[in-house]
């Protein structure tokens, strides 16, 4: 999936321009960038949920799902009811895998709870399950680690690796450099004028981290 010369603005306020890049299939790509640099905006555009001011996005027959960095539920809804939405068009054989994902994210005992009565981390796990259970082949996850404790950050990492081996493609945004180094093949640094992309080991070096994330030392 490729995109060229994307430009984003809210009203008269420009967020970024001339953003060009490619999401490589069956890999994990991580977007890094300071708050407000436009990571969410870029993901919304790639998911066709927001129109770019200018530019082109080429999506080849792949279904795509975007998980926002925060999701609200507006009425009474149990975890089970939410997750059932995802198997509307699923075959029997998928249901087993379905239950595995629910179990891994520690949701089996929470299935009958109202989503709004769960803690922040529990809610995030519910939404991660919702994302993993989508039929889409490309998943865009916006800050998936938010609210997760150490244990579930690890669970999430393992699920990422496993789903990738099943042929899925991931684009995730993170603020955790070490997690990015561990989980992704490609890293993008988002700046207002350009997208700096490359293989993780080549691009995730001290100099780039200091420069693009606007910090003066790593500690």
């Amino acid at each position: 999936m490729q995109f060229e010369e994307l430009e984003a603005s809210y009203g008269s306020k420009k967020v970024f321009s001339k953003i060009t890049g490619e999401i490589v299939r069956h890999n994990v790509t991580t977007i890094l960038g300071p708050n407000g640099s436009g990571k969410t905006t870029l993901m919304l555009m790639l998911a066709h949920l927001m129109k770019p001011t200018t530019g082109k996005i080429k999506l080849e027959n792949d279904s795509l799902f975007y998980l926002p960095q925060r999701s609200e539920v507006y009425d009474y809804m149990t975890v089970k009811q939410l997750l059932e939405i995802t198997h509307l068009e699923k075959a029997e054989s998928d249901i087993k895998q379905h239950n595995q994902i629910i179990a891994k994210l520690g949701l089996t005992k929470l299935l009958n709870n109202d989503i709004n009565s769960l803690s922040g981390g529990q809610q995030q796990r519910v939404w991660l399950a919702y994302a993993f259970l989508q039929p889409a082949r490309i998943l865009l996850l916006d800050e998936p680690l938010t609210y997760l404790d150490v244990k579930y950050q690890q669970v999430f990492y393992r699920m990422l690796v496993q789903e990738k081996s099943r042929g899925r493609t991931f684009l995730i945004s993170l603020h955790d450099i070490e997690f990015a180094r561990r989980c992704s093949e490609y890293v993008w640094f988002l700046t207002p004028e350009k997208l700096v992309t490359g293989k993780t080991d080549k691009i995730l070096i001290l100099e780039n981290i200091l420069h693009y994330l606007e910090i003066d030392s790593i500690n």
Binding site: L49, P68, S71, Y74, I85
Partner: peptide, 14 residues
Amino acid sequence: LDYFALPELQTKQL
């Protein structure tokens, strides 16, 4: 009707 409990971003994707 039940889908209105979800955020707009999700109903769009459905």
